[in-house]
Design a protein around this nucleic acid. Structure first.
Lengths: 194, 194
DNA sequence: TTTGTTTTATACCGATCGGTATATTTTTAT
DNA sequence: ATAAAAATATACCGATCGGTATAAAACAAA
């Protein structure tokens, strides 16, 4: 790993939480130099533009989330358990190394959907990949008799994502853990009923 | 209504969709002069700061949404019908005078939760008011025997909001109407099961 | 250790940022 | 119609924006 690659990685790691909290438009170059302790010259020696850093930062934030998810679902051997793992992680995401600023998909989606096509596409791909992963678990559960044959895998996946992301928004906004628990309990109920 | 009041109103109406699409940090004063055709002097003659316009713009966007909601729920006489009206409005919000840029609560919540306390509080109050309105409908439905006594009004309200807001995010991000329909169908199912 | 090459810092660019003092125009009340 | 008051436009403020040319420094290979 060359020095430049290390610095690139370092810049991404240090700016990723800033982008996730302040958003793309709200993060300035001086925010980036503050977060890294580097100068503009150094940053622009490793990235072509602020855009390029933002895209790499999103990838980094997303990878953090998906890594946690992969780890926690791998622990479970039943399909129901795997689905439940998502609820567990999001229910106490403070206990995991979750990106500061909350869910990067939600944050990026709402900011970029009318303003930043490249970021929007990255967020869209992330949501679709998540949906496919969830739907695959549901499908497997149907095949092995764990879930009812009447279950629609894609609909179940989309509904779970909507509930979880909506839950994150409400919980972060209001600061009420009680709300988060109530919604997550509904997700659990949904999974139990499959 | 004085000239100044009319201009204030005009500024809010013209900038509200811009704030909703580009966000607070992403909307500049030149965006505001472009949207209104007015000069900075004129805007600052009616508002103390960009902040003040943004807060008024949020109120305006929110009021548009709540007005549609109030109108559509008023049409229904059953509690189940009233809840279903929310699904209907959000399912085809293109047919209503919905603010450009999507749901102002979702947009403001995700942008402002780490950056703008005043906007964050406004968004939080809006979500809480919405929750209370939904919960009140559910409570009434329980009292008049329309819904099961085992239904938890607040949990139901929070779950509906999470699903709807998550649905908006996913649908706007991916552009797939099919996804929106799938999630909204899940909300319908939830309401049917009350 | 020296040399050539990367990498980083300094200094600067024009443009735009949010905001304001003041002059000019438009309303409003008489 | 006219004078006083209110609203709008012009011109400008210092600060910061994203970005770059270039010089200094750190690194790697010999």
């Amino acid at each position: 790993m060359s020095k430049a690659e290390k610095t690139r990685q370092f810049i991404v790691e240090m700016t990723a939480p800033v982008f996730n909290e302040k958003g793309y438009a709200g993060t300035s170059l001086s925010d980036m130099t503050n977060a890294t302790g580097l100068t503009k010259g150094s940053i622009y020696g490793n990235f072509a533009s602020k855009d390029e850093v933002a895209l790499a930062a999103f990838d980094h934030n997303l990878q953090q989330v998906t890594a946690i998810m992969a780890q926690e679902t791998a622990r479970q051997d039943t399909c129901r358990g795997k689905l439940m793992a998502y609820v567990q992680v999001y229910s106490n995401f403070l206990k995991h190394p979750f990106p500061a600023g909350g869910c990067p998909m939600l944050n990026t989606a709402t900011e970029a959907d009318d303003t930043h096509p490249a970021l929007k596409q990255k967020a869209a791909e992330a949501i679709l990949a998540w949906k496919d992963r969830l739907a695959a678990i549901v499908e497997k559960g149907i095949r092995n008799g764990e879930f009812s044959k009447k279950t629609d895998p894609e609909q179940t996946a989309l509904t779970m994502i909507a509930m979880i992301e909506g839950c994150i928004m409400i919980a972060k906004l209001t600061g009420k853990m009680h709300y988060r628990n109530a919604i997550m309990q509904s997700v659990e109920k949904l999974i139990q009923a499959l």
